[in-house]
Amino acid sequence: MNTVNDTSGDTELIGAYIRGEERAFEILYHRYKRQLYGYLNNLLRGSSVDPDDVFEETWLKVIDKLPKYRDEGRFSAWLFRLGHNIFIDKIRKNAAVMMQSIDREDMPELPGPEHRQPAGEMENIELGREIEKAVQALPAEQKEVFLLRQQELSFKEIAGIQNCPVNTVLSRMHYAVKNLRIFLAESRSLMK
């Protein structure tokens, strides 16, 4: 018998999962799968660690550890922490491959003056693409903080995931935003 549905809260779903109710895990998985996959794809782009592997291992770990899960905060923060720990382990094992932090000199070539677009006609979608490129150019820790903030995690939760003080996270976010502004300003000036 199922006591949960799509509107049930995370805590309710976890309780139902522990009781063995069939739909509980399915609902929880569908609720968070796109966010976790998006985070891992963006975080691991350019590295040799396969985001699909990390994604699958993260959910297998959730399946295993969920019966012992204690309500120590939001489920989403716990989920991203599991994902973070798994990709860190893989990177350490795969020590020959470093997470590439693309130097500004190595940034993909932007269109030269002959391809410039009329002023004011840069669409939101193009801006989005520029921001994505700029995010990929950030140092790894700044990139992760920025991506986790996109997932609406608090700085305290991010500090728990990165295992560092909150002030360190704040500093990383500050420099991430500063670097993004610089990258975007440069890319716009190149397009003029």
């Binding site: 895990f25 399915e26 998985y29 799968k33 796109r34 966010q35 996959y37 998006g38 985070y39 794809n41 963006n42 699909d52 994604f55 699958e56 959910w59 297998l60 399946i63 989005g128 921001i131 994505e132 995010v135 920025f146 991506l147 996109q150 997932q151």
Partner: peptide, 16 residues
Amino acid sequence: SLRTADVPPELDLRIL
């Protein structure tokens, strides 16, 4: 695009 991405169906099936 930084927040979410579509999960390949085969991954979905294995995990579920």
